[in-house]
Every structure is written in structure tokens, then in C-alpha cells.
């Protein structure tokens, strides 16, 4: 597979060396490398470490599930409150319609 190598052994070695030093530097905040990396590689941990997903229940519920399946649009979600450039909302459709045919 490495017959088609586009990257030289020395380039690879220097990339690994940079990463190895970078890995240690990234751990301490405020480094130059961390600054250049701030758009990427920034971890977003889940909101709740306890959230292991749905737990089982051996209980019943008195909640009634409504039967209706009819729905046409996403009206109450944050999708529709997302403001996009040009005052558009979170739907991508108007954006697509603006594109030249």
C-alpha cells in the first residue's frame, strides 16, 4: 500500500514529532498550538455524565399516548428559531431557493 506514498518518511517523522510535543502542550492550556487549534479539537463533553440513555422501567404509566400521527411541520423546536444570515430561520430551504438556477 505504501508504494503510492505521497508523504516522505521524514515528513511523517516530523509530523509525529510535532504531534507528540503538541499532545503534551495541548494538555496545558494557552500554548501557541492550542490557540491555533481552538476551532478544532476542542472537546464538547456531553451535558450529563449520568445520562446512560434510557433506563428500563418495570412500571406502568398513566400517561395517555395521543393517537394522531398527522403533523406537517416542525413548529415548536429550536430548528425554527435558529437565525441564519440575512434574517432567515433554521430551515435551509429558503437558502436553496436563493441559489441561481
Amino acid at each position: 500500500m505504501s508504494n503510492t506514498t505521497l508523504i516522505s518518511a521524514s515528513a511523517l517523522a516530523s509530523a509525529v514529532a510535532m504531534a507528540l510535543t503538541g499532545a503534551t502542550v495541548l494538555a496545558s492550556a494557552g500554548s501557541a498550538l492550542a490557540a491555533t487549534e481552538k476551532c478544532y479539537g476542542v472537546a464538547m463533553a456531553g451535558q450529563n455524565d449520568c445520562a446512560a440513555g434510557p433506563g428500563t422501567t418495570c412500571a406502568g404509566t398513566s400517561k395517555v399516548d395521543y393517537q394522531g400521527n398527522a403533523w406537517k411541520s416542525v413548529e415548536a423546536g429550536t430548528c425554527t428559531t435558529m437565525s441564519l444570515e440575512g434574517g432567515r430561520k433554521g430551515s435551509l430551504e429558503p437558502l436553496e431557493r436563493d441559489m441561481p438556477a
Binding site: 505504501s2 506514498t5 508523504i7 511523517l12 509525529v16 510535532m18 504531534a19 495541548l26 479539537g41
Partner: peptide, 26 residues
């Protein structure tokens, strides 16, 4: 490592290998 880096550079010329390796480790 060489094959993955080569294939990626071929498809994404701006690919930053050292940064990707940093993320990989971190």
C-alpha cells in the same frame, strides 16, 4: 500511517497531518 496519510493528502490537499495526529492522541 503512511498509506492513510497519503490517501488523505491526495483527496484533501490542505490536510494538516500534525494536527490530526495531535487530535488522535489527545
Amino acid at each position: 500511517l503512511a498509506a492513510a496519510a497519503s490517501h488523505t493528502l491526495a483527496s484533501h490537499p490542505g490536510f494538516a497531518l500534525p494536527a490530526a495526529l495531535s487530535v488522535l492522541l489527545e
